[in-house]
Design a protein around this nucleic acid. Structure first.
Lengths: 252, 252
DNA sequence: AAGTGGTCTAGACCACCGG
DNA sequence: CGGTGGTCTAGACCACTTG
């Protein structure tokens, strides 16, 4: 027989469900609209709630849905592009950057960070906590590690912590000549403290951007920034990135 | 008040489980070692298998574990850094790039791609499929869209498809002067065809890198590359990225 | 054939948010 | 308070790999 053995592999239910929902989102829903609750949806599709949730989880991972406990599931707007790498290298806290210093402490960093900074594993370094907002939402939380040797003239006599001290530290840092920087992006899950800043649950998927600032042939500072993976598209390069968007209707 | 009311919130079991397993991975397991199967582990920790799986899923997302159906769960090696953006812009297929052309077709691209290329939505464009290997493993699958107007002198008389045609197409592309490029990174889930190339299940988490190549003040080509999020750390900038690694023992 | 991870079910209770 | 999503259970069967 001319039997083309097409479906020897049955498609998982949650995968098919995801396809159906994606098409529905593109054609029948507007951004911000609230979906039926999970129990109703599961019943409507004739599957268990856990199976439906598997589909919803993937759609949330892809930035198509937003779910909030006690509220409901809504259609997410297209991801916003956030610039994380420009052609010209600049120090953090330079003019026009999108970050806001929260506070500053001095403590021993994680071992992996200490190794990169070439400080001793128990040697305390300045640790600046910053937050990045975009379109009124928090999009990233950052820990910026600056070894004391990078800011030798910093006067630690006044408050050695707090937002004001953080700004003073960054001013000191700018006195060095920045010779280069490089970044890496990888997938991670939000630690409890970052999750709180990002208004997400712990474990939420994040894009971790690690940036090394080079001055005097040394790593003068190291930034570890965690971006919300559901709402952000990280852009590198000249012109603010590529606009990829799904077809979607506009809220009335 | 600054009262952080954390004591009233019980930690979810899977979250605690993840913490315990992470510490065990750091101290008691070597890269490549096989963990006990899920049923045994669940019994050992006194939880349901679904709960244990929730913890394992997060650890796999973070690149700490690798799970393969029919085989088992193994301790993953540290993520490999793959370079996706250098200071000097270069055309795809240039000297020393890590990609391997698979084949080439001519078809109408997705609507979002057509919009960026400023071609008609039903206008066919050259579509090159490429694969990227690193350390003997497939790390990325790419679709490179090249409108016919970018390669006007391409002779289509011989086979209009296949790897040989793909190489001819890239040679033509290199005749244009590349004026700039920019990229964006976002989280996605692998489509069925990409998953197959990447040796993963459909829906696996991937980092989608969209790169626009600009020549003659137009988008002369558009690349959409999906990288395995579990095994890859994408590096941008001068020097191949930052080496962040977990403490871990070496296989004997 | 045996053992693995992947999918699915039908429940239950909990934490959170809004009115 | 009622309704939402988040967590958890104790099973079952399936798809896949290996010996």
């Amino acid at each position: 027989m001319g039997t083309t053995q097409l479906e020897s592999v049955p498609e998982p239910k949650y995968w098919h469900l995801k396809t159906v929902l994606t098409e529905a989102l593109d054609s029948e829903f507007s951004v911000g609209e609230i979906l039926p609750n999970e129990r109703d949806l599961a019943a409507r599709f004739g599957v268990a709630r856990a199976t439906l949730r598997q589909a919803l989880e993937q759609l949330e991972l892809e930035g198509r849905l937003q779910r909030r406990r006690g509220v409901g599931t809504t259609v997410a707007p297209p991801r916003m592009g956030v610039s994380v790498g420009t052609e010209q290298h600049v120090w953090p806290g330079g003019p026009g950057d999108a970050w806001q210093s929260v506070d500053c402490t001095e403590a021993a960093p994680p071992a992996a960070v200490a190794d990169i900074l070439e400080t001793g594993r128990d040697e305390p370094v300045h640790t600046v906590r910053r937050t990045r907002m975009s379109h009124g939402q928090p999009v990233a939380a950052e820990l910026l590690y600056v070894p004391a040797s990078s800011v030798p003239d910093l006067s630690a006599i006044d408050a050695p912590a707090g937002a004001a001290h953080a700004r003073a530290l960054l001013r000191e840092l700018h006195r060095l000549e920045l010779e280069g920087q490089d970044s890496a992006v990888e997938l991670g899950s939000a630690r409890a403290d970052d999750a709180k800043e990002l208004d997400r649950l712990p474990g939420a998927p994040v894009l971790v951007v690690t940036t090394r600032y080079v001055a005097g042939a040394r790593t003068a500072a190291l930034s570890v920034a965690t971006y919300r993976a559901d709402t952000c598209r990280l852009t590198f390069g000249d012109s603010g990135g590529v606009e990829i968007h799904h077809p979607h209707r506009h809220a009335s």
